[in-house]
Simulated assay, not measured.
Amino acid sequence: MKEPFVSILMGSDSDFPIMESTVEVLEAFDVRYELRVRSAHRTPEATGEYVRNAVDRGCALFIAAAGMAAHLAGSVAAMTVRPVIGVPIDAGPLRGEDALLSTVQMPGGIPVASVAIGKAGAKNAGYLAVQILSLSHPDLAAALAAERERNAAAILERSDRLQEKLADRTKS
């Protein structure tokens, strides 16, 4: 079997500063990925060719990011039965709200998992991709669990330090 990878598609290269968060998460978990610029409107044939080819080469799931009339995730979902995660980019006069609605309003039978608008959504798309892959890769599930434990410990430690600072303040 081919080693699975995640395909990250962006409607424009200007989306990369946001989607870099997805890349960082995938790299942190040593998950293979490809990153391409494809547009649902400007390069529909190239988008379809890429999606079909990626599936043939072992793509496990797609992350599609676009702003404004964000049809990329829906277009990709129409071409494959692999999971598709849509990332609405915070662009244009509506700051991503239009992209969110374009991403989430899919007809029954053509699902797109949608995450938050912008950088937080891009980061969560990476984590969701790792979670999906972890269903068949126990090492990823263990790595996710370990990271969550480290994050929880760090929050508690910062909370304790804050409480100590506040206690010192009241003593003065």
Rank of each mutant, 00 (worst) to 15 (best):
E27V: 12
V6Q: 06
Q131E: 10
A154Q: 06
F5Q: 02
G86M: 05
K123Q: 15
P44T: 05
G67F: 08
L61G: 04
E34L: 11
N53R: 13
G121P: 10
S14C: 06
A54F: 10
D168F: 07
Y33V: 05
L101M: 15
G67N: 01
G109K: 03
D15E: 00
L101H: 11
A40R: 09
E20W: 04
A141D: 02
D139L: 13
K171L: 13
F16L: 15
M68G: 09
Q131V: 02
I85Y: 05
M1R: 03
A143L: 08
R82P: 07
V130M: 08
G74N: 02
S21L: 07
K171G: 03
V130E: 06
K119E: 10
V51R: 15
A120N: 08
R32T: 09
L128S: 03
A146N: 05
R42C: 00
L140G: 12
H137M: 13
R52Y: 07
G86W: 04
G108C: 06
E164G: 00
E147L: 15
R95W: 11
A167H: 09
I89Y: 11
Y33Q: 04
P88E: 01
Y50T: 07
V104C: 07
A113F: 11
R32C: 13
V115C: 02
V51Y: 14
A46C: 07
I18S: 14
P111H: 10
V104L: 15
I63W: 01
R95L: 14
C59S: 05
S134L: 08
M1Y: 04
G67H: 01
V130H: 10
S75E: 03
S75M: 08
Q105M: 09
T103F: 02
R52P: 04
F5W: 03
E3G: 12
S159A: 13
N53E: 12
A69C: 00
V25N: 09
D139A: 14
M19T: 08
L156H: 06
L140N: 12
L61E: 02
A69T: 07
T80W: 11
P44Y: 04
D139H: 14
Y127M: 15
V37L: 01
L135F: 14
G126K: 12
A54P: 01
A113N: 03
P107L: 01
A40E: 01
S14Y: 03
M79Y: 02
T170Y: 11
A60K: 03
G92M: 06
